[in-house]
Design a protein around this nucleic acid. Structure first.
Lengths: 185, 185
DNA sequence: TGTATAATAGACAAATTTGTCTATTATTAA
DNA sequence: TTAATAATAGACAAATTTGTCTATTATACA
């Protein structure tokens, strides 16, 4: 069960996988430790508590997620193509077995008002995404900020619904609508 | 702690409240029983297991939710107003303290592939909603089914994001976009 | 080499989880 | 009234939860 990397990395990587696959509340510390092949004391010395581990998971997930989407966007040069590439990113994610939707939305559904730091992490992730989409939109000649939030809502709807239906149609529909909105044939 | 109704109703009503407020996994059977003021054996004789109770919760939630949204829609006569009224329904829900987004999306985030019946309940709810919005749209003179899924995605995005931001702006934006899509001034 | 640090295994605690079972008390219907 | 049914309280089980603590072994550094 030993995995590459030092104990801290092994714990975080295993927790990230299990929190996403099974959910945060449905995943016990013991399973994380067992699958990571790491001692319990290592977890508590590095993270302090399960909640701190959950927060570290969200922080790392944000970094990784934006790295992925920007990599997809930066393949394109034309502003229109760059904007539309965000949906290609979703299209690429979905067919992967074990797709479970957005890590942040999932965490928000599990953690109530008793874990405000979790909620804040989710909010910050979504704010950053909203801002990013806004920037991609206004870089398109002739486009203003007017439709930015619509693009954002379509993107979010596409993530959530592609999970519900386990199908790409929401992503394709959202992309088509955005193309239409910005007057692209 | 006793509540009106027979034990079965009391259990379901209390479970519905707690599952929504705290989440399904975060809510223990014992808390439900305590707050419902009902004996444990009553729960197991009426529902059989926690999962069955969860399924009963989703089924009742679907009925109640559609009763609420159709009541809002049926206040209006003009097809355009009827379509837009679905966003008024969301606007009405959100300011209620304790708004936690969509019960079905939340449950989907908590239950993995190990509970396929839960996932099916969610899927059926969303399929019904998608169909309903489709009908409301094509009832508008000059509208075809072409934009139906876009309306659906905007609606879903509005629910999820109004929870994230704890604000009505996603609902207002979605409504405005739909009005624009159907060429309404 | 010697020493501080890191990591390990695993026992342990205290609480909580779902679910079962028994024995008693209400309620309802014939 | 009698008898079947429904509901109750609560003990109990077996597993699991997060977190702590001890004692031992590796590792890294001076």
């Amino acid at each position: 069960m030993a995995r590459p990397g030092n104990p801290k990395e092994k714990i975080l990587a295993t927790a990230a996988r299990l929190f996403y696959e099974q959910g945060y509340n449905a995943t016990g510390i013991n399973q994380v430790l067992e699958e990571a092949g790491v001692a319990k004391a290592s977890l508590y010395s590095h993270f302090g508590s399960k909640e701190e581990l959950g927060l570290a998971y969200l922080k790392e997930a944000r970094t990784a997620w934006f790295a992925g989407i920007t990599a997809m966007v930066e393949k394109k040069k034309a502003p229109v193509e760059r904007l539309l590439a965000v949906f290609d990113f979703l299209e690429q994610q979905l067919p992967q077995q074990g797709f479970k939707g957005c890590r942040f939305i999932n965490m928000l559904a599990e953690t109530g008002d008793s874990q405000p730091e979790m909620q804040l992490q989710v909010l910050e992730h979504k704010r950053k995404l909203r801002k990013y989409l806004h920037q991609l939109l206004i870089a398109v000649p002739g486009q203003t900020a007017a439709q930015a939030d619509t693009v954002y809502l379509l993107f979010e709807g596409a993530i959530v619904e592609s999970k519900v239906y386990r199908d790409l149609w929401p992503v394709k529909t959202a992309k088509k609508t955005v193309r239409l909105l910005i007057g692209q044939p």
